[in-house]
Amino acid sequence: MTNKGLAIVAYITIIGWVVSYLEFKKRADKSALVNYHLGQSLGLIIVSFALGIAISVLAAIIPSLYFVSFIISGATLVLLLLGVVTANNEAMKPLPIIGKFFEGRFNFDGRIDAAKQ
């Protein structure tokens, strides 16, 4: 699979992320594009999971807030699609709203940054 393909697959569910991650780890030449999009998609997965739990708890307490879960799900889908389009264009742009927070937080290529030592 190409680097572009791995970057796109990283956004397609948690299973796609795991497949992309395992394929990336096997490679001798680590692509910065795949590394970047693995981090962005993992950030999106973490945020959507946390928001899903929070909204579920709130909807259980206040049932009239259940419609908020549809808005959150729609926003997650839009961010996922934007991530796929960005990966398809082979660009390393952060996702809107949450992307800057996760930029540079994850390093999947196994190298230790000299500045962090």
Rank of each mutant, 00 (worst) to 15 (best):
M1L: 08
T2K: 13
N3Q: 12
N3P: 10
L6V: 04
A7I: 03
A7G: 00
I8K: 05
A10V: 02
A10G: 04
Y11E: 06
Y11W: 12
I12S: 01
I12R: 01
I12V: 13
I12D: 03
T13D: 03
T13Q: 08
G16D: 06
G16R: 02
Y21N: 01
Y21T: 05
L22H: 05
L22S: 13
F24H: 03
K26E: 15
K26L: 14
K26M: 13
K26F: 09
R27G: 14
K30L: 01
K30N: 08
K30Q: 09
S31W: 09
A32S: 13
V34P: 02
V34E: 01
V34D: 00
V34I: 05
N35M: 07
Y36F: 15
S41G: 09
L42G: 10
I45P: 05
I45E: 12
I45Q: 14
I46S: 14
S48N: 15
F49N: 11
F49R: 08
L51Q: 05
G52I: 06
G52Q: 10
I53E: 06
I53G: 03
I53V: 15
A54N: 03
S56C: 03
V57A: 11
L58D: 02
L58P: 01
A59T: 15
A60G: 15
I61H: 06
I62H: 07
P63H: 01
L65M: 15
L65W: 13
Y66H: 14
V68Q: 07
V68N: 00
V68A: 12
V68H: 07
S69T: 08
I72D: 10
I72L: 13
G74L: 09
A75N: 00
T76M: 02
T76S: 15
L77I: 14
L77N: 02
L77D: 03
V78Q: 01
L79Q: 03
L79I: 09
L80M: 14
L82K: 13
L82R: 10
V85K: 12
T86Y: 09
A87F: 05
A87I: 01
N89G: 02
E90S: 09
M92Q: 14
K93T: 12
K93Q: 10
P94G: 08
P94L: 02
L95P: 02
I98R: 06
I98N: 09
G99R: 11
F101G: 04
F101P: 05
E103F: 05
G104K: 13
G104F: 09
R105V: 11
F106A: 02
F106N: 00
N107E: 12
F108E: 02
R111G: 04
R111Q: 12
I112M: 07
D113N: 13
D113H: 06
D113M: 04
A114E: 10
A114D: 07
A115G: 02
K116N: 08
K116I: 08
K116P: 00
K116V: 08
Q117R: 12
Q117M: 11
Q117G: 11
